[in-house]
Amino acid sequence: DPGTMVASGTLKTKSGECADTGTSAPVRVVTDPLRTGDVLEDGECQQLARMLEACLSRAKRTKLHCSCVLVPEKLTRRIAGQVLRLASGEPCGLRGCILYVHLELDKGCKRLERIAYDAAVVPTFELTLVFKQDGGAWPSLRDLFFLGSCFAPTFRTVVRLSPGFRLVKKKLYSSSAGTVVEEC
Results as ranks from 00 to 15, higher is better:
D1T: 09
P2Y: 07
G3I: 04
G3S: 07
D20M: 03
T21F: 05
G22V: 02
G22T: 02
R28P: 00
V29D: 00
T31K: 04
P33T: 05
R35A: 05
T36F: 10
G37N: 13
D38R: 00
D42H: 11
G43D: 14
Q46K: 09
L48E: 05
L48T: 11
A49M: 08
M51H: 13
S57W: 10
R58P: 04
R58Y: 06
K60M: 10
R61E: 15
R61H: 07
K63Q: 07
K63A: 11
K63I: 00
H65K: 11
C66M: 15
C66N: 14
S67N: 13
S67D: 07
L70H: 13
K74D: 10
T76H: 06
I79N: 10
V83I: 14
L86C: 02
S88L: 10
P91Q: 12
C92F: 03
G93Q: 04
L94H: 04
I98S: 08
Y100A: 08
E104V: 15
E104H: 13
L105P: 03
K107P: 00
G108L: 06
C109V: 09
R111I: 00
L112C: 07
L112Y: 12
E113P: 00
R114E: 02
I115C: 11
Y117I: 05
Y117N: 02
A119R: 03
T128Q: 15
F131R: 14
G136H: 12
G136R: 06
A137N: 03
W138A: 09
W138H: 12
P139Y: 00
S140R: 14
F145N: 02
F145R: 01
L147E: 09
S149F: 14
S149V: 15
S149L: 15
C150Q: 08
F151C: 12
A152Y: 01
T157N: 15
T157W: 14
V158F: 12
L161T: 14
G164R: 15
F165P: 14
F165H: 06
L167P: 04
V168W: 02
K169W: 03
S175M: 06
S176Q: 11
A177W: 01
A177S: 05
G178S: 04
C184S: 08
C184A: 13
C184K: 08
